[in-house]
Simulated scan of single mutants.
Amino acid sequence: MAEAFIVGAVRTPVGTRKGALADVHPADLGAHVLRELIHRTGVDPAAVDDVIMGCVGQLGPQAGDIARTAWLSAGLPQSVPGVTIDRQCGSSQQALHFAAQGVMSGTQDLVVAAGLEQMAMVPMSTNSLVVKELGVGTRGKGWEERYGGQEISQFRGAQLIAEKWNMTREQLEEFSLESHRRAVTAIDEGRFTDQIVPLEGLTQDEGPRRDTSLEKLASLKPLRDDWMITAGVASQISVGAGALLVASEDAVRRFDLTPLARVHTLAVVGDDPVFMLTGPIPATQAALKRAGLGIDDIDTFEINEAFAPVVLAWAQDTGADLARTNPNGGAIALGHPLGGTGAILATKMIHELHRTGGRYGLQSMCEGGGQANATILERL
């Protein structure tokens, strides 16, 4: 099988719901990173075989195949097609998988893997409002017969995980505080500078809170009186986009490209849709088994912080070192623009491997419906 190389990886700063990027149209958000990706890599954009973009809320300004719209909005050749995919929060990580698989199969040479979410314009609840207006459920009779009769939500899933893994609210809040601390350190040390493409005057991520504390986190009201889950231990509603260029060995030679990383191993799994958020555990195990690697062979992990219990349960079951996990903070501090997060995390991980000289990075994230992707990249 042919090799797939990542030759470019960029992202926007991640904005908050009411921040500097709140009024940026999703197509322009995506166009911004696509244009910069082509500029930085120096490839002929007409040579790109496809643009694969993850986006969860594919309605309103994000409808109509936002991958195609963003590419054209960037002023790039109309001969290049685009496709938008939805694997929930893992949408743009799946875009990276599809791009790599296209190159590995030998049927494509240059594929853009990207993702975006404009949650200020298309809130996470928008789909529910549409469903309510139509008067139909999001799940059919067969699904209801199998899993119905109980509440299905990411919030309940996070609470169930915290209970099953015997976590305390204090543990969750300590983890969240550390996420903010790491993110602030990363920003102050300029670790994100090279990967970020400034937009609307915004040059750094807006989410990290320098003034947060355990006392402030403890003062937040839980979503339900008998729950541990508060806004402080959950990812932030955000605006952001990321893009990577995946190239074949032939394209690397032809366009004189410099590979940043090799796509080493890909895995995707399904898991319990009621717990919903536990997928990174079996996904990590599957990827490591396929790669012939152990957990201690991985130099850095990016495990999406949808909720603090997700990462803590994952670390317990895999034996991963939390010191090497989300070393520059995670979504609790930096935000989680749904369909854009996979590409953003991959970009962060590649740059972190180059900063530290590590060899392997592993990325995974929980996804709606009880799923997870896992990706192992090797720094070159």
Rank of each mutant, 00 (worst) to 15 (best):
L76F: 06
L76P: 07
Q78N: 13
Q78I: 07
P81G: 02
G82I: 07
G82Y: 11
G82Q: 09
V83R: 08
T84A: 01
I85C: 08
I85L: 13
R87W: 05
R87E: 14
R87L: 13
C89R: 07
C89P: 13
C89V: 07
G90R: 12
S91T: 11
S92P: 09
S92H: 10
S92T: 09
S92D: 06
Q93H: 08
Q94R: 06
Q94L: 09
Q94H: 11
A95H: 08
L96M: 09
L96K: 04
F98Q: 14
F98C: 11
A99F: 01
A99K: 00
A99V: 00
Q101T: 01
G102C: 00
M104T: 07
M104R: 14
S105A: 13
S105K: 10
G106M: 01
G106Q: 05
T107N: 09
T107S: 08
Q108K: 12
Q108M: 11
D109C: 05
L110A: 05
L110P: 02
V112D: 10
V112L: 02
A113L: 00
G115Y: 05
G115E: 07
L116M: 03
L116S: 04
L116G: 03
E117V: 05
Q118M: 10
M119G: 02
M121F: 01
M121V: 02
V122K: 00
P123T: 02
M124W: 01
N127Q: 08
N127C: 11
S128N: 04
V130T: 07
K132C: 13
E133F: 12
E133H: 14
E133D: 14
E133P: 05
L134N: 10
G135L: 04
V136C: 08
V136G: 01
G137N: 10
G137T: 14
T138M: 15
T138R: 11
R139M: 15
R139L: 15
R139T: 14
G140Q: 01
G140F: 01
G142A: 02
W143V: 14
E144V: 12
E145L: 12
E145V: 07
R146E: 10
R146M: 05
Y147C: 08
G148V: 07
G148C: 03
G148M: 09
G149D: 02
Q150F: 02
Q150A: 03
Q150K: 12
S153P: 00
Q154G: 14
Q154A: 11
F155S: 09
F155H: 10
R156Q: 14
G157Q: 06
A158F: 11
Q159E: 15
L160P: 12
I161L: 15
I161P: 02
I161H: 00
I161F: 04
I161S: 08
I161D: 01
A162V: 08
A162C: 10
A162P: 09
E163K: 13
K164G: 03
K164R: 15
W165D: 08
W165Q: 07
W165M: 09
N166Q: 15
N166L: 14
M167I: 10
T168C: 03
T168D: 04
R169W: 09
R169C: 11
R169A: 14
E170R: 14
E170A: 15
Q171T: 13
L172R: 07
